[in-house]
C-alpha cells in the first residue's frame, strides 16, 4: 500500500544570534491511510517544528514531503492552499488557536467557505452536523469561542479540521493542555472519527500515556533526530534508547499498579 505521507531527509535550522541552530535533522517517516503515528520526544526535541514543517507552515531547508503522492514542497501557493483541505492541523493551546473575535460557527465555516462551493444555508447545516460529530451541542454555534471550556474549544478545533474532509490531521500536543479526564474524552473522540472517516493522524506529544491510548506506531525524537522507531507496544514495553526509557519512566502511574 502506498503511504499517505512520506517524509524523507527533512532538515530545518533556525537562525539564532547569527548562526544556524539545527531543530530538525534528516528526519524520515511515513504514515499510511487511517493510521496513527506518534512522534514522541521531550521539549526542545523538534516535535513542534516538525508539525509545522509537515503542514508547510514553515519551509524546510532540505528534504521532501510526499503527500498523496505529490511533493507538496513544490506546490505553488494556490495549489498548496487547495491541498490544505486534505492536510489539517490542530494546535496545543485551545486558547490561542482561534481568532479572539471568532464565533464557533465562523471558525468552522471559514474552512467550508474556502474548500466547498456550499451556499450560506448549506454551510450552516454542515456546521451543525460537524458540531454533532464532535459531540458538541449545535446550539453553541453562535457562541463566542471565548465562552467555551478548554475541552470544548479543542472539540471545535477538531470540527474545524474535519470540515474539509482531510485524509491526514497533524495533532500538535492537541491534548497536553487538557485535564486528564477531558484528555481521555478527546482521545476517544479522535479514535471514533478515525473509524468513521479513515483519517490518519500524526500525533505529536511528550506523553507516552497518551501514545499508548491512541498510536499504532511511534517514532521517538531527540535533538531533532529520530532515535527509535517501532510499534507503540514495543516501545512502551522495551524502550531501547535512553530518550525512550526516560519517557517511559516519566509517565505517572497509579501507586497501586507500580507497587
Amino acid at each position: 500500500m502506498r503511504p499517505l505521507l512520506q517524509v524523507s531527509g527533512l532538515t530545518k535550522a533556525f537562525k539564532r544570534g547569527g548562526r544556524g541552530v539545527p531543530a530538525v535533522q534528516d528526519v524520515s517517516f511515513d504514515i499510511g491511510p487511517a493510521e496513527t503515528l506518534a512522534l514522541v520526544g521531550p521539549s526542545g526535541s523538534g516535535k513542534s517544528t516538525l508539525a509545522r514543517l509537515v503542514t508547510r507552515l514553515i519551509e524546510p531547508d532540505g528534504g521532501s514531503i510526499l503527500f498523496e503522492g505529490e511533493d507538496i514542497l513544490r506546490l505553488k501557493p494556490k495549489a498548496m492552499r487547495a491541498m490544505r483541505a486534505r492536510l489539517q492541523i490542530v494546535f496545543q493551546d485551545p486558547g490561542s488557536a482561534f481568532n479572539p473575535r471568532a464565533t464557533v460557527s465562523r471558525a468552522i465555516a471559514d474552512s467550508l467557505k474556502i474548500h466547498t462551493g456550499f451556499s450560506q444555508g448549506e454551510r450552516r447545516t454542515r456546521v451543525r452536523d460537524l458540531l454533532e460529530r464532535v459531540r458538541l451541542n449545535p446550539d453553541l454555534a453562535e457562541r463566542s469561542i471565548h465562552d467555551l471550556s478548554g475541552g470544548q474549544r479543542q472539540r471545535v478545533a477538531i470540527a474545524r479540521a474535519m470540515a474539509s474532509s482531510p485524509t491526514l490531521i497533524v495533532l500538535d500536543e492537541a491534548v497536553s493542555a487538557l485535564d486528564v479526564s477531558v484528555r481521555a474524552e478527546i482521545l476517544h473522540l479522535l479514535k471514533r472519527l478515525q473509524r468513521e472517516t479513515r483519517v490518519a493522524y500524526l500525533f505529536i506529544t511528550h506523553d507516552l500515556g497518551v501514545v499508548r491510548a491512541i498510536a499504532d506506531r511511534v517514532a521517538v525524537l531527540d535533538d531533532g533526530r529520530i532515535v527509535e522507531h517501532g510499534s507503540a507496544q514495543e516501545i512502551i514495553a522495551t524502550p531501547q534508547s535512553p530518550t525512550a526509557q526516560a519517557l517511559v519512566a516519566a509517565v505517572p502511574r497509579l501507586r497501586l499498579q507500580a507497587q
Binding site: 507552515l57 492552499r81 490544505r84 492541523i89 494546535f91 488557536a97 481568532n99 471559514d110
Partner: peptide
C-alpha cells in the same frame, strides 16, 4: 506569530 494565524493558513485561507 500567533497560533490562530497559523490555523488560518492551515485551512488554506488567502494571505
Amino acid at each position: 506569530e500567533r497560533d490562530y494565524v497559523a490555523s488560518a493558513r492551515a485551512i488554506g485561507m488567502h494571505p
